[in-house]
Design a protein around this nucleic acid. Structure first.
Lengths: 207, 207
DNA sequence: ATTTTCATTATACATACGGCTAATGAAATT
DNA sequence: AATTTCATTAGCCGTATGTATAATGAAAAT
């Protein structure tokens, strides 16, 4: 583990490019983003993108990998915190998971923004992202939804439709924050607004 | 009202460019779309875009105008079909409106795709779209939601949050259709899948 | 039949793009 | 102190972009 001043600076540059890529890709999409813009926003020369990441495509994949690894780190709900014997316990668990998911969406709106842009049309990038990350998360979501259906917390309807209803109820309020600010005059980044959105989402989804 | 063969052909060309612009803008966003791509997809020379629409920006505005005028034409629910005296009548009206909105999203996924791309970040285009179209629709949605809240059909929580929950529950299943196909192996354009999604959405939202 | 109109095409231009090679220079190594 | 390493920068290449102007030619008007 080298930590010479040059290595530290190198990693800082790499991280700056990655964060800049997250922002630009999430706001303009892959085709609409330019490596020169990403480099300029990171304050480095555009040739460094090839040096650190190889190509625009590889940089995009590195950005997506960062997003899903962070999500996995911040949303580790594979094992419920306690026992889930009673219906009330499962309801509370559902509320807990949904609350944390909404908070994640509010904290990191660029995640859903970036993936949404890529899911609008089929592509090799979408195929890679689904195979590498999304398919596994989808299976976890399916188990989560089916458990809540068995318990009567969610209605017994199409599981894929339910998953997209839940995710769609959570994400757009934050991914479309610029529109929300202009149209409704409120800021989805404010804690009180987030709390109100969580209350609304739980009131609608968890019965 | 001229209808000479030249005028007819001119309008056909204009319409072809507009439809092509809807598709390309909705899949790649404004910055990711090129006027040459749009023209090639419409089968015309790219200089015709300047001739018929003035500029890329004006073409985008014409496309958005087309989308919202079509939505207004296909979603004329300002006046309920019958009287809304009883709670059951208001529930039925809510179901009717939501069903038709989901069907609109399924029929024309490019509408939400295009607007979503523009709502991810603030811009002059977003400002124009919100001032010209979205603000008015938002006020209508607010009235709709408040009526259902008074009747106990929707919970008494934050109205903007509820609006985005409803819209988010309806749109992504169709805007993100390529992802749905890859991850779940189902086609959100199929009638049976749409019907299942409507059932799920109504079961969750209308109590 | 001749002229005019105008939808369409050809072409040009300055800029921006992704990707690449060579040069640079400070830190690390010898 | 001399040499090597390598993160960073400068600059070029072929292509693509948005926009503008001139040329074309068939339909419309005279």
């Amino acid at each position: 583990m080298k930590s010479s001043s040059r290595t530290v600076q190198k990693e800082a540059t790499r991280a700056a490019i990655l964060q800049s890529a997250l922002l630009v890709f999430s706001e303009r999409g892959f085709d609409g983003s330019s490596t020169r813009d990403i480099a300029a926003h990171a304050g480095v020369h555009h040739a460094l993108i090839k040096y650190h990441f190889g190509s625009k495509d590889t940089l995009w994949r590195a950005a997506v990998t960062f997003l899903f690894e962070r999500q996995a780190a911040e949303m580790s709900f594979d094992m419920p915190p306690g026992k889930l014997d009673t219906r009330q316990q499962r309801r509370d668990y559902a509320r807990l998971v949904l609350r944390h998911y909404v908070l994640y969406c509010a904290r990191h709106p660029e995640h859903a923004r970036l993936m949404m842009q890529e899911s609008l049309r089929d592509s090799e990038r979408l195929q890679w992202a689904t195979d590498t990350f999304i398919a596994g998360i989808a299976r976890g979501s399916e188990r989560f939804v089916r458990m809540l259906q068995r318990e009567g917390v969610l209605p017994d309807v199409s599981v894929p439709a339910l998953v997209y209803i839940i995710v769609g109820a959570a994400q757009p309020f934050y991914t479309l924050a610029p529109e929300v600010r202009r149209v409704w005059g409120i800021d989805p980044a404010a804690d009180s607004v987030i709390a109100a959105h969580i209350d609304a989402l739980l009131a609608v989804l968890v019965r």
